[in-house]
Design a protein around this nucleic acid. Structure first.
Lengths: 222, 222
DNA sequence: CGCCCCCTGTCAGCTTGTTGTCAGGTTCAA
DNA sequence: TTGAACCTGACAACAAGCTGACAGGGGGCG
């Protein structure tokens, strides 16, 4: 059975989500208080956690961090207020598995939840290889030619998103949304800088720039 | 035409589903035996699979996993016995695209099937070929005789528009509208220049000029 | 508390690809 | 034959993307 811990203080939103989850066959335990949520997440066994970062009492971030501290390792989908910039990066650092800026579509939430569950429970499928690059999403490991790489969280998110969508061209705005879990800042070449840093680590020619369109992983020709 | 592979051993249910599918315009191939189903799913081409997990002979889960193992990637809607939660979780891991606990309403099944098909269609690698030219809209890649081309975004837009409308002559003003975002510039031979650049890359005789009317892709005679 | 290191955004300058313009040439249809 | 439609190579302006340097902030550790 699939139990989900839902940490959300806004009653209306919480009810919505809970209903949707139920309709999809998940069992949702609702928790509005951060402290309490942390306790429950630590003692009971959930398949995943949906966590709103805008909590009173104890902020979601601390939960995330503490969660990481002990052995437990359930996947976490984080809900953030749109544009809460500082929360984003920190949250990513703290180890969220996926992000969803509010407001969002319920289908979107379900989709992410599914993918997070699948990835987490993942078997052999969590290891993806493209040429000499291998990505193990379960272990959060990226290696080139077998040599493990030291990636920051943003770099890791960039790679995994590209790898997951390796069969198409990912527009930069989409990449930004997923890497930073929110809409882009107006003018900033942050993504390009990140792109460059990643390239320096994994090799210059694995990510292809499609000028005017986006980026895509370059599959080695068979 | 949309063919669905229906893997279900209960004859009554199978007949029900098959009838419903037929009524909705799908063509359903029924298969009661798991082993056999796996074989068919692997050799024939279906738009989707409806799979009952409670199969004798070979359990549905193995089919799912094997399916993921090889290249094939048709969407799968899984039917589970009520409350068979463990199956469900495993199923998710194995890569089912949607679930339906028994008993269910036929409308519900159709709805899920539709949504799964729709979702999947968005990911299909849409590959069009005209003679030696192949256009993969998903990867945004154009190749001639298997050799991938380096096209700018305008060039790419030009080609795809022509390819999409290969069965008619596209007037230049229409081409301009679609290649450039709306408003055409008054007098300028920009399009002709673009046209030339594209031709130089894909081969001089693939695009035919209809003097005074427009352009059209030249289909090789069969 | 203070130090240091890592992460990451900003900035400025640079490189390179893209694209419209133009001038002249070529083709085609009447 | 003639004029309009179309093609082409060259060029210059522009924009997209890349890079190295730098600084602020946070976390870890003594």
């Amino acid at each position: 059975m699939t139990r989900i811990l839902l940490v959300e203080d806004d009653e209306r939103i919480a009810a919505d989500i809970a209903a949707t989850l139920a309709a999809q066959g998940y069992i949702a335990d609702l928790e509005a208080d951060g402290e309490e949520a942390w306790f429950r997440g630590d003692t009971e066994d959930y398949a995943a956690v949906i966590l709103d970062l805008g909590l009173p009492g104890m902020d979601g971030l601390s939960i995330l961090k503490r969660r990481r501290g002990n052995g437990r390792n359930m996947p976490v989908v984080v809900l953030t207020a749109r544009g809460a910039w500082s929360e984003r990066v920190e949250g990513i650092d703290a180890g969220a598995d996926d992000y969803l800026p509010k407001p969002f579509q319920m289908e979107e939430l379900i989709a992410r939840l599914r993918s997070v569950l699948r990835r987490h429970a993942g078997q052999a499928s969590s290891l993806t290889t493209i040429g000499e690059l291998s990505v193990d999403e379960r272990k959060m490991r990226v290696a080139v030619r077998g040599v493990p790489l030291n990636l920051s969280s943003l770099e890791y998110r960039l790679i995994t998103y590209l790898v997951r969508n390796r069969d198409r061209v990912v527009p930069q705005h989409e990449l930004i949304e997923h890497v930073y879990a929110s809409d882009a800042e107006p003018d900033s070449n942050a993504l390009e800088v990140l792109e460059g840093r990643v390239r320096r680590k994994i090799g210059r020619d694995l990510i292809e720039t499609r000028r005017g369109s986006g980026y895509s992983m370059k599959e080695p020709e068979a």
